[in-house]
């Protein structure tokens, strides 16, 4: 069974962490992943940096730009990860924009992910229908779970369609925004979290965007299986460095 599905079965609230590979330094990738696992994180999203990350706010934009300057490429990332399954056992997801995958070759990319032991992909700008028509079979051949986003504006009909073609979890974007806005969650978000929970979808939901501390993590996971933190973790990395990862994780889940 795919590690993501196994993890989702566990009777606990899941914390997933996103970071941009190649930041703060090119070769921090493995040590960040190992430290996150040791600190008790349940799942990791490894960001493959892109020059034009449309769905991201200033923090992730800046870390992606920096990572590219540091020399990160698709091949470098795959090379860094080649022995990752010798030391890390939690689910690993690669999150990136579609163009670098298209240039690598979608099938070659998926095969490489399987070889390394990547469990899933999140590709914000690969639309559901294009995936379903053209790429679903390839992803399945290589045992990869593709994770789709929904937002407060996504229609019920579309959520049901996304649920029907998903086989892991649904990435629930907390509000209408790019990543990194963190003004906390109000009644509107709580109502949305509840509304989705009441749909009783076949796939569990994990909330992302705008989660930055224990308070927002708790709010987000009241109705969902887990939550994803990106920008707040990257800020912590910039300020405190790779060695202080445990402090960050403790501040969220303790």
């Amino acid at each position: 069974m795919n590690r993501i599905n196994q993890k989702l079965k566990e009777d606990k609230t899941l914390l997933s962490i996103y970071f941009s590979a190649g930041y703060p330094s090119l070769n921090d990738t493995v040590s960040i992943i190992e430290n996150l696992e040791k600190s008790g994180v349940d799942m990791i999203e490894i960001g493959l940096p892109f020059s034009d990350p449309l769905a991201d706010g200033p923090t992730i934009q800046a870390s992606s730009t920096e990572a590219l300057k540091n020399g990160m490429t698709t091949n470098v990332l795959f090379d860094q990860l080649k022995d990752i399954r010798k030391t890390v056992s939690i689910p690993l997801i690669v999150m990136g924009y579609f163009n670098p995958m298209l240039q690598y070759g979608v099938e070659a990319f998926c095969k490489k992910c399987q070889d390394i032991g990547i469990d899933g992909l999140i590709i914000p700008d690969l639309p559901v229908d294009v995936y379903n028509d053209q790429y679903k079979a390839i992803f399945e051949t290589y045992g990869l779970i593709n994770v789709f986003l929904i937002t407060p504006q996504t229609s019920v009909e579309r959520i049901n369609f996304i649920d029907s073609i998903s086989n892991g979890f649904i990435y629930m974007v907390s509000s209408a925004s790019v990543t990194g806005s963190s003004s906390g969650f109000g009644d509107e978000q709580t109502a949305y979290f509840k509304r989705i929970a009441n749909m009783k979808l076949k796939n569990p939901q994990i909330v992302g965007f705008g989660i930055s501390n224990n308070e927002t993590f708790t709010q987000a996971t009241q109705y969902a299986k887990g939550a994803i933190i990106g920008s707040a973790f990257i800020k912590h990395l910039s300020n405190q460095g790779v060695n202080a990862i445990t402090n960050f994780v403790k501040s969220i889940i303790d």
Partner: peptide
């Protein structure tokens, strides 16, 4: 062509 957009833009 096509519309390769994040879900946030879909509506």
């Amino acid at each position: 062509g096509g519309a390769y957009i994040p879900e946030m833009l879909y509506p």
